[in-house]
């Protein structure tokens, strides 16, 4: 009985030491990760982008969501297939303020289309997700049916190649599950995905100083 008790108390002490050790580890880890953000910002990283108080960033990084930097995107088309969801959370967005409202839209028509009608064989979009509407001569308006869009970037490719790039791909938070590791981000050849603070949840075109070509 004597031996047992000695063994028990020895183990208790060992456990206490272990507990204090683990606690110390966790505390220093937490301290490192939060302390680094205290007093001035962390080395300004992608997570800081759009943060309202970048200078006086005094507590911790805000929750983040995934976005695609339209400036980096090369319209490779893989967003349509690389998302973990059946319908990709990346879809086509349209900044109407950048749109040329072309009669001959290269985001809407097949490159070789001879007749500018909405006939299916002239349409670029494999799911017919773009609506074309006459505004006034010679202008037409284009809108995306988001439920139909699969994010294949075919129209984005045509628009950015020939036009202004008013069509572009972006992560739609209505669909995005905000995976801890975005499976599109991992495979994106252009490394165009980044985490942005939830307060600035969309990187949309036409908000900065960019110019078309």
């Amino acid at each position: 009985m004597d031996v047992n008790e000695k063994q028990t108390s020895r183990r208790e002490v060992l456990r206490l030491v272990g507990r204090v050790g683990v606690l110390g580890c966790l505390a220093s880890l937490a301290g490192m990760l939060t302390g680094r953000l205290r007093g001035g910002c962390i080395e300004a990283g992608p997570a800081c982008k759009g943060c309202p108080d970048q200078d006086g960033c005094d507590l911790v990084t805000p929750p983040t969501v995934w976005q695609l930097d339209p400036a980096k995107c090369t319209n490779c088309g893989q967003c349509a297939t690389d998302c973990v969801l059946a319908q990709s959370a990346v879809r086509c967005f349209h900044t109407h303020a950048l749109c040329g409202h072309c009669k001959l839209c290269f985001g809407y028509f097949e490159p070789g289309a001879r007749v500018l009608s909405s006939a299916a064989e002239n349409q670029l979009c494999p799911t017919g997700a773009i609506q074309r509407r006459f505004v006034e001569d010679p202008y037409y308006a284009y809108t995306i049916e988001k439920d139909l869009c699969i994010g294949c970037s075919k129209c984005v490719h045509g628009c950015s190649m020939f036009g202004n790039g008013s069509l572009y791909l972006q992560v739609d938070h209505e669909l995005c599950k905000n995976c801890n590791e975005c499976s599109i981000a991992r495979r994106c050849p252009a490394n165009a995905f980044e985490r942005v603070p939830v307060s600035e949840a969309y990187l949309l075109k036409g908000q900065g100083e960019e110019e078309g070509n």
Binding site: P62, P63, V65, F93, H94, T95, H96, A97, L98, G100, H101, V135, E136, Y139, A141, T143, K146, N164, D172, H173, E174, C176, N178, V198, S199, A201, Y202, L204, G206, E209, E211, G212
Partner: peptide, 29 residues
């Protein structure tokens, strides 16, 4: 500032905003 001049619409056409759906709010987290 956007340096794209809007087409010279005369019919009073108003450009729609890009539609976005808000992300799950930080409060939920």
């Amino acid at each position: 500032m956007i340096r794209f001049p809007k087409p010279d619409f005369e019919s009073g056409y108003v450009l729609p905003e890009t539609q976005t759906v808000a992300a799950r709010a930080a409060g939920w987290e």
